[in-house]
Design a protein around this nucleic acid. Structure first.
Lengths: 331, 331
DNA sequence: TTGTAAGCGTTATCAT
DNA sequence: ATGATAACGCTTACAA
């Protein structure tokens, strides 16, 4: 298999009998070109299957690559997938490409992904930070004018734009819903590690709600688990308590899934449940699941808007956009 | 805000008092370099915050970018998200970056994404083709030795590697499960458009099963819908039939979600349901949901393996890898 | 209307 | 052990 070399602009030029510059003119619709030269060039382009080399172009023009680098913790998580989709569609009409990488929630991978993006001369960065990461090292990039927007969780050690969910208020509304229905022992199943921004905020909202209803805080009612099977086990531990909770608040979609499965297996339809983040099948569960719904697509779109404004030269100080949540009562 | 220029290799060189080439030598650990020159260079790199420009490097080396372009229909669909995640983790240790774009299931967007990837000199392509697309235009790329692997659905008009689910056999096993339990009128709710490869194959499996059980085929029992609300409506149409089905086979995850919701709203626990593709909450539904489970992560990993082999120079003819499904009986 | 020369930030080649 | 020069594929500035 004679692996043929990819044709360059000069190959096209030679084919037609002109200079590379003329081909460049035709392709960029720049300056005057004789009509039949134009025709011939375009035909040669088709014939040779010529594709311009964007890398070379960008380098010469001194522009960055028309791509934005996006770092998310996991691709398989529909929450982050939807966020990434929101970013992409908001950014597409501007001719920007999205490069996505996943950090598996580790600071090392996050940093190495970001380096890879920077080395590729991306025009902007969008990052869902992992729990342990510190973003001081990005200061020089920010100073150099590279737009960076943080998503779902704010940056650490860096004043940068960010778009987050109304975590604390949302969690509070969910827990108050339970308290309002007479529950006094409400369990909390949150993400791991507990230092995660969203986990901390939602936990704070949980405590806010307890306080608002003058309910005592009991550390024994707080459990954690990163994936849904860990959350299921956490749920069982709570149910096995001497003085078990009569209601649960689960602080993210995996936690909710885990708790729903655990309760169903245990046949415990008497335990009330409110989850942070909506689930596709929430309404058909038995009992139907009340949730604090986020709007991941809106988060992605808002982040993209901020980013585009920065790319357009907006120089205002770092902004924090909070996307409201919505309590969907189904029980 | 003095938007400082990003330092180049020559900047580092000037700082130390050497030539760019020497800096290059240090950074690439190539050729002999005096120990203290090395030290000084590395310090200058740190001090200036120098980041090598990958675009320039790749251009000079004549190598393609160490990235693989992945085209999926939708990021928010956990099936494709998980597939993409499988690809990424399989490919990461080789130092390859994944660039993901979504085609929104349209041939135009798919093609323009692929062009964007090619212009960026990606090392390989991985594509979930949209329904209407034709891939003849990629022949020259294949000839030029660019590895291309098709995922979930084969290429059209192009002999290329592909990794697909055992659609026909899987669907057949699911429908046979229903027939085996005595159902003689089994509805089919599939994807739209009906020309979609996976839809056609799973439909063929449905017919295989009917034939195996000597059940008559009734066109009225076949419905379609692309998202879950369309599938819900399709389900209601089936139930409203004069001689309605007593069981349903839903041919993808959205169709399944839609049908589950529709049945629950109608309070129809008597209608049996088997879905293609597993759902996180399948086991806790009432009645529990029996599914034909796919393995999206395995699909991504298998595709990545094929791709890496091609990158390593394997020149065998196009391969088709079929990932088996598993019937999970829960009812 | 088209061509020539130079240069973007790297690395290959050949000197020194 | 290091440097000078050319080159990758393209575009800018200027000339013809």
């Amino acid at each position: 298999m004679a692996t043929t070399r990819r044709p360059t602009m000069s190959d096209v030029a030679r084919e037609v009998g002109v200079t590379a510059k003329t081909v460049s003119r035709v392709l960029n619709e720049e300056g005057p070109v004789a009509l039949d030269t134009r025709e011939k060039v375009l035909e040669a382009v088709r014939k040779l299957g010529y594709q311009p080399n964007l890398m070379a172009r960008n380098m010469r023009v001194g522009a960055r690559d028309a791509a934005i680098g996006v770092v998310i913790p996991e691709m398989g998580n529909p929450f982050f997938g939807t966020v990434a989709g929101g970013i992409e569609s908001a950014v597409r009409e501007r001719g920007l490409t999205v490069i996505v990488g996943s950090s598996s929630e580790t600071a090392e991978l996050e940093r190495s992904l970001i380096s890879a993006f920077l080395a590729r001369q991306v025009s902007a960065l969008m990052v869902v930070p992992s729990a342990a990461s510190d973003h001081r090292y990005l200061r020089s990039e920010r100073l150099a004018g590279l737009p960076i927007v943080f998503l779902d969780r704010p940056a650490v050690g860096l004043a940068a734009d960010c778009v987050v969910s109304a975590n604390r208020e949302g969690a509070r509304s969910g827990v108050e819903h339970l308290a309002g229905r007479g529950h006094t022992r409400i369990g909390f199943v949150g993400d791991q590690p507990v230092t995660l921004y969203t986990r901390r905020e939602r936990f704070a909202g949980y405590r806010d709600a307890l306080e608002a209803f003058s309910l005592p805080f009991d550390r024994a009612l707080v459990e954690s688990g990163h994936d849904s099977s860990a959350a299921a086990e956490a749920t069982l531990r709570l149910l096995a308590l001497p003085d078990p909770p009569t209601a649960l608040f689960t602080a993210n979609n995996f936690a909710t899934t885990g708790a729903v499965v655990a309760l169903a297996r245990a046949g415990r339809k008497d335990v009330a449940l409110v989850g942070y983040d909506d689930l596709p099948l929430a309404e058909v569960l038995d009992p139907p699941l009340t949730v604090v719904a986020q709007d991941p697509a809106a988060m992605g779109a808002a982040a993209a808007e901020l980013l585009l404004a920065r790319l357009d030269g907006t120089r205002s100080k770092a902004q924090k956009t909070v996307i409201p949540t919505k309590l969907i009562v189904r029980a």
